[in-house]
């Protein structure tokens, strides 16, 4: 297995993701500058089994979080990557926002209902463990992961919500308090084919006992087993 972490201007969780994949999970991983990928870049994405879009504030969150990043060469190359290969894409926080802006995941991430940047550890319920990302967990169990965002309120049109439920695309929901006002307390989803994943919580920030209970590692381990 081989993974890549896409680095955009303003990414700031790229090294965390790189560290967890390469050092904690032992997966050969490259950090890729977004312009070195795609039609005019020299690095083909197809050599990777997993592409991570890390957290941060790509392009300063200007216009909307992820709105400008979606036109970056690396993000434009994802459609081709998904059409031609069989690899997986995981967007964490800003990465999730980019995936919705790019239309690779349904819905959008709006401003938190609380008008605050929220930075705290939350409890999450695993809604569907039958996907590559969540395969190391059990449906119905609760895990702990940190969140850190200003635009994390998941919003989707009513018919989109029905479709998410019908296809069992909701992976994680906030257990107990819904910190940002997300519809149906949704914290993470996937596409119908279970190849594109978006999470507002940061699993890479809870992979070692020094930083938490290690639930983030339990989650990410699923990707390695795939």
């Amino acid at each position: 297995m081989r993974a890549a972490v896409i680095v955009l201007p303003g990414s700031n969780c790229d090294h965390d993701a790189f560290y967890v994949l390469s050092q904690v999970l032992g997966v050969p991983t490259d950090l890729l500058w977004h312009e070195d990928v795609g039609a005019h870049g020299h690095t083909p994405l197809l050599q990777y089994d997993l592409i991570i879009l890390p957290g941060g504030f790509s392009y300063g969150d200007y216009l909307r979080a992820g709105a400008i990043a979606r036109f970056s060469p690396a993000i434009l190359a994802l459609s081709d990557y998904l059409a031609r290969g069989c690899g997986l894409v995981l967007g964490i926080c800003n990465g999730f926002q980019i995936l919705t802006e790019a239309g690779l995941l349904p819905g959008a991430l709006a401003r938190n209902i609380t008008r605050q940047f929220i930075c705290q550890t939350v409890r999450l319920r695993v809604e569907n463990a039958d996907t590559p990302l969540t395969s190391a967990l059990q449906t119905g169990e609760e895990i702990e992961l940190p969140i850190a965002h200003d635009q994390g309120r998941y919003v989707v049109a009513p018919n989109g919500l029905a479709e998410l439920k019908r296809n069992r695309q909701v992976l994680l929901t906030y257990a107990g308090e819904n910190p940002n006002g997300s519809e149906e307390a949704i914290a993470g989803i996937c596409d119908p084919k279970r190849r594109v994943f978006g999470l507002m919580p940061h699993p890479e920030r809870n992979t070692e006992l020094l930083l938490g209970n290690g639930d983030g590692l339990r989650l990410l381990r699923g990707l390695k087993q795939t």
Binding site: A67, F71, T100, G107, A108, A110, V156, A157
Partner: peptide, 8 residues
């Protein structure tokens, strides 16, 4: 295409 996200 860019300036408004029709979902929100």
């Amino acid at each position: 295409k860019l300036l408004a996200n029709p979902v929100i």
